[in-house]
Every structure is written in C-alpha cells, then in structure tokens.
Computed example of a mutant assay.
Amino acid sequence: MTPAQARELALALAGAVEKPHHELTSFRLPGAKGRIFATLTPDGAELRVFIKDEAARDAWIAREAGVVEPLFWGAKRCGVKLLLAKARPGWVKELLAQSWRENGGSA
C-alpha cells in the first residue's frame, strides 16, 4: 500500500481533513476539536492509527504480526502503527474507520 492510498482512505471518511502535525501529516475529524485519528510519517513508511479499544489493538497486532505494531505515547499504548509497504488496503480501511468512530466520527 502506498502513502497516497492511505491518504485516500483516510480522507474518504465523512468530514475527515488533512493537516500538518509537527513533522507528521495528520488526519482529523472536522470541527473545532479536530481530533486526530491517524498520522502519516514524512517518509510515508508508517501510518499511525489511534485505536482506544485495547482488545481491538491486541487483535490487530496478533492478526497482522510484522505489519501492525503497538504505538506508544510515552509508556502508554495509544494505537497501532502500520508498515504501509506490507499493509492491505481492506484492513487499513477497517482500522481507519474504527479510529474515526472511536474519536467521534459519525456518518
């Protein structure tokens, strides 16, 4: 999967917008809060998806070992990071949609 494909999937979610976030590209919910549901590294190698549901994070990591890894904010796990070159669009779409919903997105 390419960074352009990941961008397309993220922006296909209702109201999603793209904005810079430090050195990253962020994908956010619309509105004043603009919660981030995913980020893309500058080199396009990693998509970081913020999944709050711990069981869901663990399931994705186990299901796609070597492609999906834990994402930490300090010592706290806050989501998963995907190695885009090995990722499949179908399940990347699922992960992005889950994060979008968990962070307040609605159709």
Rank of each mutant, 00 (worst) to 15 (best):
A85Q: 12
K76G: 08
V80D: 03
A87G: 05
A85T: 12
D58C: 02
R88H: 14
A65P: 09
L71W: 04
R63I: 01
I61G: 04
L84M: 09
A65Y: 11
K76V: 03
R88C: 05
A56I: 04
V80T: 07
A65I: 05
E64Q: 12
E64D: 08
G90L: 08
C78Q: 11
I61W: 02
R57P: 01
E69K: 12
W60R: 04
G90F: 06
P89S: 14
L83W: 11
W73M: 10
R88W: 00
R88Y: 01
V68Q: 04
K86Y: 08
W60Y: 15
F72W: 10
A87L: 04
W73D: 12
W60F: 10
P70N: 08
W60C: 00
C78A: 11
L83D: 14
G79L: 01
P70S: 10
I61T: 04
I61A: 06
W60T: 00
A85F: 04
A65E: 14
R88D: 14
W60L: 07
R88S: 13
L71C: 12
L84Y: 02
G66S: 10
G79P: 00
W60S: 01
A85D: 11
W60I: 00
E64Y: 13
P89I: 07
V80C: 12
V80P: 00
R88G: 15
F72M: 11
A85Y: 06
L84I: 05
E69D: 12
L83R: 15
P89F: 05
A59F: 02
I61Y: 05
V80R: 03
D58L: 05
L84P: 00
R63Q: 15
A59E: 14
K81E: 07
A56H: 09
L84D: 01
I61H: 05
R77S: 08
P70Y: 07
K76H: 14
A75K: 13
G79A: 08
R77E: 15
E69S: 14
E69P: 00
A85I: 03
V68M: 03
G74L: 05
V67S: 07
R77G: 03
A65G: 13
R77W: 01
R57A: 00
C78L: 04
A85R: 14
E69N: 10
